[in-house]
Structure formats: C-alpha cells, structure tokens
C-alpha cells in the first residue's frame, strides 16, 4: 500500500514534459560549447607553430601541434635580466605562504566566532560580512597609503598580508562550521578537559577539511593571478603574471607565446579546483546568507 502511494508520487514528479528535459540539456550543451570556444582557440593558438599563426583563413586547431611556444617562453625569459625562475619562485612563494597563513588565521577566527558569543563577536562578524559588499579594488589607493605608513612597500608582505585577512574565506569557513560541527562533540571534549587550542586543532580542523580545501581553491585562484602591484618596485620581487604580461605586450609577434601564458595561468587554479571539486561543493552548500 505504502510503496504504491510512493510510486504514484514519483510518477507524478516525473510527469513533467520529456521535451523540457531535452530543451534543458540542449541549452546547457550549446551554452557550454560557446563558452569553450575562446578557451579552445587559446589552447589551439598556444600549440601552433609560427607559420600557422597567421594563415588565412585562420584555423582554430593547429595542423602540426608543437610545444615550441611553451619552450620559447622559458628561453625568452631565462636570458633576461631577471630570470623567469625568479618570477616563478615569487608566485609560488606568495601563493603558498599567503594561502597557508590565510587558512590558519581565518580558521582560528571562524572557530571562536562560530562557537562562542562574547562582547563584540556579533559586531565583528557583521563587519566582516559587510566587506563582501564592496570590492577590495576600491581601496587600492588608501591601501597604498597604509602600506607606505607601515613601511611594507616593496616587499613580499604587500602580497601576503592582505591575503591573510581575506574576508570571503572567513565567511565560508564560519558558515561551514556553524552548520557542520555538532555542538555535542565540542561539549563532550570540554568535559574531558580539552582547552580551546586542543578542540580547534584536533577536533574542528579535521572536521572542516572540505572548508579549508575550498579556501585553498579560492586563495590560490586569487594569489596565482596577482600581477603587477603598484607597491612593488624591485624587479626581483615581481610575479609571474606580471612577467608574462610583459612578454604578451610583444603584440602579434608573440601571439603564440601570449596564448601559452594564458593557458599556464589558468591551468594551476583549474587543477587545484578539479582535485578538490567535491569538497568545494560541500562547502558551498553552506555558503548561504541567513535572513
């Protein structure tokens, strides 16, 4: 009797038009294809030998694919005043340190904001949430003045310190903790005499692995794309995207190399995203804002 009723319900749910399904999948596929064209074109261009780049009519895919553009990229830069390895090191360094520090600091802050109410805690969180409502780019100039006053300009700190206090990361971490950490677990740890550091490092952090993997994805995305900063003058401290953009300004003569640059810049955050994709989805399911 019960199963019959259920079957009836499922049947009712599936009674939506078959045509609708087809239209939805078709629209999704067509749209995805359109979105892919520029990327496919860029990949194709990065693999084209020089004599294929400017044939008329131009082709999307290369006839004789080659990795020469990628190799050229390194030979172009190895002989330059500051070798490309240095730019590469700078980008890897600020991405790694900035992401690591961000996760530790944001998780610690999110932990107390999620677990406790204490004087100022609500105000502090609503202030952090409020900063999601405007873009950091608006603050570029006063940021420079602050960095200048603190004597931080022209150092790695320019890239790293603001990344530590990224607000989207803290917001996502706190939302995840709010919804995913059972209070009873922490309470029983308290009865066993665990202090806050023990609770944070041994209970909370392992439980919120999806959230910190998500923070890694977003932090790597932002830091890896860090380009020219108006606060860094020393060439030895500049980043890979900056160096690559300098090559790309070579115009049509460097079109193939330029495309190779774009591909390298997308590849790193994309691989990080693919690897932690299911964890990111779990975290984003708690990203909502309550009324």
């Amino acid at each position: 009797m019960k199963t019959k009723k259920k079957q009836h319900l499922i049947k009712k749910r599936l009674s939506r038009s078959r045509g609708g399904d087809v239209v939805m999948i078709l629209a999704l596929s067509v749209f995805t294809l359109i979105m892919m064209i520029p990327l496919i074109y860029a990949i194709g261009m990065s693999l084209k030998p020089a004599n294929e780049l400017w044939v008329f009519p131009p082709t999307i895919l290369p006839q004789h694919p080659t990795l020469k553009n990628y190799k050229d990229l390194f030979s172009l830069m190895t002989d330059s005043w500051v070798p490309i390895q240095r730019y590469l090191f700078n980008s890897v360094f600020i991405t790694a340190v900035g992401t690591f520090g961000h996760i530790i600091l944001a998780s610690m802050a999110a932990y107390v904001l999620s677990r406790y109410t204490f004087p100022g805690s609500r105000f502090i969180f609503s202030m952090i949430k409020g900063t999601l409502m405007f873009s950091g780019a608006v603050l570029a100039i006063p940021n420079y003045l602050v960095m200048n006053a603190l004597n931080l300009t022209d150092s790695y700190m320019v890239y790293i310190l603001p990344a530590f206090s990224n607000t989207l990361g803290l917001f996502l971490m706190k939302q995840f903790m709010d919804q995913m950490i059972p209070m009873s677990l922490l309470e029983s740890a308290e009865i066993d005499g665990a202090n806050d550091w023990v609770k944070f490092s041994q209970i909370v952090m392992p439980l919120v692995k999806p959230a910190w993997l998500t923070l890694i994805v977003f932090s790597v995305r932002d830091l890896w794309a860090t380009g020219a900063s108006p606060y860094v003058y020393t060439e030895q401290l500049k980043t890979l995207p900056y160096a690559l953009s300098q090559i790309a300004t070579g115009g049509v003569a460097r079109a193939g190399v330029g495309a190779a640059i774009s591909i390298i810049l997308i590849l790193v955050p994309l691989v990080v995203f693919i690897l932690s994709q299911s964890n990111v989805m779990e975290t984003m399911s708690t990203s909502g804002m309550k009324e």
Binding site: Y111, L113, T131, L139, V146, L150, P162, F164, S165, D196
Partner: peptide, 13 residues
C-alpha cells in the same frame, strides 16, 4: 584566537 586575523583585517580593510 581572533586577534591575528582581526588585526590584519583592521589594518588592510
């Protein structure tokens, strides 16, 4: 726990 994050948040935001 809050201080390291909060200090940087205040300084840079």
């Amino acid at each position: 726990f809050l201080a390291p994050y909060l200090i940087l948040f205040i300084v840079f935001t």
